[in-house]
Design a protein around this nucleic acid. Structure first.
Lengths: 225, 225
DNA sequence: TACACGTCATGAGAATTTTGCTGGTTGAAG
DNA sequence: CTTCAACCAGCAAAATTCTCATGACGTGTA
């Protein structure tokens, strides 16, 4: 497994490089954005760890450039800033995960492994997008129109299922099977009530509503004014 | 799809038969246990719906006989009695699901479809067993030593994951990935605390303990005094 | 248009699950 | 054999999710 590390702080870089090598990864280290971009475009990496603050070319621009070249390597963003806005920007630029300094090495490792697992498994995307809503599966973050939306675990699973089936009507039974893992009708209205909560967060205040109810059938995720 | 219906009450039988035919199933109807067993052993069915109270041969014995012949057709038990003890007996005899009269036809249909889906998908079992614990996935019921154990949804998922990996040590990270769908360390002790709850229900009061902790590694499900 | 019926949205209260903490165990190193 | 740090059980408080009752809405019928 080859990892590209783009980090100008020598101390942090050494710490990460050492840890990853001990775990059996081959690590290439670039000290500035230009160098990093060059390496990313010329060598085949399984994942990249990119700092935001970099000399010559900043991390966000670097990631955008990589994505413009249609490269799908999973990218983990490192940053000293942990504000919501920074995370949103990072994930929008095309990052697959976001880690705030300082962090435990074990956490970086876990995330790299999670990303590599996902990306080698061709059937599993790391992000989903419908209309102006995008979802980062690893960090479980959802952004609509540049604004981060806080979802509860079940609300996230529900939206994920709707997004994976965007444009298709999904019945409440199907939703229950996939989101709740119930294989028979529990005779309650869990789905309806959770859809209501999700709508409050994802649709309320936006001009176009995404969650449509199809009477007697189920729900669809589709932009509609 | 061929369904075997074993039911002596003509009215109920007609009601079920009519409904299933309307849904496109081919239904064979036996009016007593002997007749039902004979049909079950001679024809290939995709599922069976069996009443408990039957002339000549009762439903439970019928199911046990079918299972002794190593037949794996999914069986739904119908019964007027809905006590916990009856359910336990039914599921222990080898039933895959249990429905108490009176029931809505839509519920019977949903359960038949769920069972057929599971059984045609060869990779998906409908029941799991380790030591004296058995788990019915469709009804989400767990029985240890003939005693039904009430589990919460998450406790059930956790036990299910442990049972699917019985004898193998599973790390807390793996448990989190599969049961909670967390792909990185949330830095909490959710797993530990849920294992504790599960132990209280599944191991407390029994001479052999099933859930073993393997220090520094994770947990195993394995019978041990 | 008015009515009846089934489906769906809504919100409050109950139940479950997670979090965060405390003190007790365990096992390795010296 | 002792010390220390990591790990774990156990519990209570906080957060999330489910349940249940009620009213709104849509659809077909007279």
């Amino acid at each position: 497994m080859r990892i590209l590390l783009v980090e100008d702080d020598q101390k942090i870089a050494a710490f990460i490089q050492k840890g990853l090598k001990a775990e059996g990864f081959a690590v290439d280290h670039a000290v500035d954005g230009e160098d990093g971009l060059h390496l990313a475009l010329s060598e085949p990496y399984d994942a990249a760890v990119v700092d935001i603050m970099l000399p010559k070319l900043d991390g966000l621009t670097l990631i955008e450039s990589i994505r413009q070249e249609r490269l799908k390597i999973p990218v983990i963003i490192l940053s000293a800033k942990g504000t919501v806005d920074d995370r949103v920007k990072g994930l929008q630029a095309g990052g697959d995960d976001y880690l705030t300094k300082p962090f435990a090495f074990s956490e970086l490792l876990a995330r790299i492994q999670a990303l590599i697992r996902r990306s080698t498994d061709q059937t599993e995307p790391t992000r989903l997008a419908v209309g102006d809503v995008s979802m980062t599966l690893i960090t479980r973050e959802v952004v609509r129109a540049g604004k981060q939306i806080e979802l509860q675990p079940l609300e996230f699973s529900l939206l994920e299922y709707l997004m994976r089936n965007a444009g298709r009507v999904v019945s409440k039974t199907m939703i229950m099977e996939h989101v709740w893992d119930y294989h028979f009708d529990p005779q309650t209205n869990v789905v309806e009530s959770r859809i209501y909560k999700l709508r409050e967060k994802i649709d309320k205040g936006f001009p176009t509503k995404l969650i449509q109810t199809v009477r007697g059938v189920g729900y669809v995720l589709k932009p509609k004014i």
